[in-house]
Amino acid sequence: MSAMHHIDIEVGPARFRVASAWRQAVSTLDQLYGHYPRVEDDLVDFTVRLEPEKPWRKFIRPSVHISGDFWLPDAAPLPLQQHLLAAEMGMNLQMALGWRRHLLLHASSVEKDGKALLMTGLSGSGKSTLSAMLGENGWRFMGDEFALLCLDSGMIQPFPRLISLKNEAIPAMNELVPADRFGPLLQGTPKGDIQHLQPQQAAVETMDVLAKPALLLFPRFGHDGALRNMGKSEIFVRLTQASTNYVALGETGFRALTRFVDEVPVKAMDYQSGDEAQAMIDKLWAELR
């Protein structure tokens, strides 16, 4: 059996052992996650495995097969250059299929004044980019992929992994953030171009500080600026679709989600640019009581 190298990564409440057949790939991860807490005891929640699809594919047209404690049978392998994306997908998979201590919402989140703003929507809606931008403009970044809703308290638990910037968001964020916080540019991935961005140091240091959800947005990029109200039943159904473990949590998940929908104000927000979105968000935030 070929040798594996691994690194333990702690993001919010979860710990991952990311094991890879490629030593170099592990050191890239080590570097990018360098300002996250060190896991001293090697005690983790999940193992992610990144291995050659076939033994010879470690060297010849190397390709990365993603698996781990939780896995999908039909995950397509990625070229070695996209190893960082493979690691990200492997960690997402563990959370999506294996995490049960929170209701997982496919949403980004940021915090101000102890209150959390959540943004959810289909891919391309801009939720991830907006969270990254707000995270550089006075908000605390809490996560670009999963918002973790506490089952008992209804609070949001941060999950600030590396931000996965896609396509147009890459040049936009490069204007705002110094180059040393970026990972390598991954071109031509199944999701287009991807570049990883380290959240601000403060966001990582406070990743165990919860925030009460105060507003949920359904952003939609590329339409004239507009705000719309949504019915509670529509919100509920869309959030069940945006949750990876709603079904797996059974009644507990139902209770947590109905409470969230009852308590948190929601708007659908169309926007044309990041600046426009930020202005709309600032206005909405000021109007919250």
Partner: peptide
């Protein structure tokens, strides 16, 4: 501690 992580991976598999 590390062996716990390994045992859990094996048990899941």
């Amino acid at each position: 501690d590390g062996q716990w992580s390994e045992l859990i991976s094996i048990a899941r598999a």
